[in-house]
């Protein structure tokens, strides 16, 4: 059974919920569209024609790609919303800023030490990917609390490299 689902495409929000055999989208009834999904390519029959689009995950984000365009996409089902609420209630701790690897690569140089004070935009680490060196900068003022990587180590996209407090 389809759960009530909040969807956001670009800047537009949609509330989708089942209504007997039909759907209710933002309060308006529509018949359930026919579609199939091949991997992440979706083909839907709309007013007799076939529309194709792709829903893909890039890092933590979902994107909808529709002929020559891409739109940020958010999907939140009732269950996910409840889970998130529960998480928020148990996780009340104060977190400092973290610096994550924006791409997979090799740590060339760490420019700061533990307990060093940094200002927003100070370069803190050099990450090499595809032979290009990329400077990662502090997202906020703070003190280096923890360094979770070392020079010459390989890191994956999203890995926490440095924790600030």
């Amino acid at each position: 059974m389809l759960q009530p689902t909040d969807i956001k495409i670009g800047n537009k929000e949609y509330d989708v919920r089942p209504l007997n055999k039909d759907l209710l989208v933002n309060g308006v009834t529509m018949p359930r569209p026919d579609f199939h999904m091949e991997d992440r390519l979706i083909r839907a029959r709309v007013d007799g024609r076939i529309e194709e689009f792709v829903v893909t995950r890039i890092g933590d984000d979902l994107w909808l790609q529709y002929p020559g365009r891409e739109y940020p996409l958010k999907i939140m089902t009732e269950r996910m919303r409840l889970l998130k609420l529960a998480e928020a209630n148990t996780d009340g701790g104060q977190h400092g800023a973290v610096i994550r690897a924006a791409m997979p690569g090799l740590v060339v140089r760490i420019l700061v030490g533990v307990e060093q004070e940094v200002k927003r935009n100070d370069p803190v680490l050099i990450l090499e990917a595809m032979k290009m060196e990329n400077e990662l900068r502090a997202p906020a003022d703070g003190v280096v609390k923890e360094i979770r990587t070392s020079e010459k180590s390989s890191v994956e996209k999203g890995d926490v490299l440095i924790v600030l407090s």
Binding site: Y14, F35, V55, L64
Partner: peptide
């Protein structure tokens, strides 16, 4: 709107 309907179902 049909995009949202298809995505919710998918």
């Amino acid at each position: 709107d049909w995009f949202a309907a298809v995505i919710a179902l998918a």
